[in-house]
Design a protein around this nucleic acid. Structure first.
Lengths: 191, 191
DNA sequence: GCCACAAAAGCAAATAATTTGCGTTTATGG
DNA sequence: CCATAAACGCAAATTATTTGCTTTTGTGGC
């Protein structure tokens, strides 16, 4: 009954979307976030402002849309041969990218949008990356913590610090990863 | 030489600040966040828009300013007699308040401001609450985890889920608190 | 208490952004 | 190739933001 909700006549053009996204990225490198206006983006993209207003509503939604695209992972986590090492390498890169100036700006843009679906998507990007690492580890017969546990023990603390406090350094990230891995590996006696 | 930087002649009036804050809070209960404009706030507060523009710059900064004030804890964590129970009670209330609609709106407002000092302040509010619980526990001779550990193991996962995914339920919060307390109490053998 | 002064606030004109109605273009299914 | 519905462009109307200037207000010195 349902059938796929195929694009109906006059569907939105991908060209406008692409040029507007490109314009946003170009402008964001040249000026402060607060300086960028929709008329500016429209001029850079070669469209009229009303097109952007009608399609995205306001600049927050547009910036969030662009940020989600840029936060989408473009490659699989590197394979070091050991799950724990994969996770450490991934976490270090994640922390570095997300605490960079553009990284933090993108996160802020995603969270600032009233539509919370962007944040949810970003969370899923992260989960999927961890799932890849977990699946590889299990394929090798290694023990690997639950994805939820990794989110709680590694991802959350990194993100919290980036958003609310000082950016986490390498040593702290390593400690978080070690702590998560100890959930499944023999915990060394602390004495 | 330095001396205290006492307010100089013509210093900013606290009355305007108070009426503008009040106007923001009043309007936020009556309408959607995206509907609230500076001219509206100015009218409600009985000041001119230019006063708000000059003092706060844009609506993001104003909303962040108001949100930080509202996120400031107004009382000490309840004292149940046991540190672990104090932490659980506090965490449950924190999770509930922060995942409520107004709570999430306030967090978003704080994070959306370009001035990151609001987020830093909110983090410190949380730390201070936990420090109170920790100090009480130590005063009783109980073992209690480091504040940083509580931030990583309890606060961060709660906040991450509120911001990026589904809100944490009571059971999850309890599990997080138990996990943090096990850092200092005899961990039960998992068999 | 009064004066001088500097920071805020009010006012209003100028500028810029946002909304909206309407005609035109464009992509899709038949 | 035609019919159609969704986007888009354009331009006028509305609304928000900026800014120069004046007036008010809070503070320290006398």
């Amino acid at each position: 009954m349902a059938g796929k909700e195929g694009p109906r006549p006059g569907g939105r053009s991908a060209r406008v979307q692409a040029s507007v996204h490109g314009a946003v990225q170009a402008l964001m490198t040249r000026m402060e976030r607060a300086e960028v206006t929709i008329p500016m983006i429209a001029a850079e993209a070669g469209v009229t402002p009303s097109t952007i207003y009608r399609r995205w509503g306001d600049i927050q939604e547009l910036l969030a849309d662009v940020a989600v695209e840029r936060l989408r992972p473009d490659m699989e986590p590197v394979d070091t041969g050991i799950g724990g090492r994969d996770l450490l390498a991934w976490a270090e890169q994640y922390a570095e990218e997300m605490s960079s100036k553009p990284g933090r700006a993108m996160i802020r843009d995603v969270l600032a949008a009233q539509d919370g679906s962007g944040a949810y998507q970003c969370c899923n990007f992260t989960k999927q990356q961890i799932e890849v690492i977990a699946a590889r580890a299990e394929g090798r017969g290694e023990a690997f913590p639950d994805v939820d546990a990794v989110m709680d023990r590694v991802v959350s603390p990194i993100m919290y610090r980036i958003l609310f406090g000082e950016v986490p350094d390498t040593a702290r990230v390593a400690r978080l990863v070690t702590g998560a891995m100890e959930l499944v590996s023999p915990a060394p006696a602390p004495v």
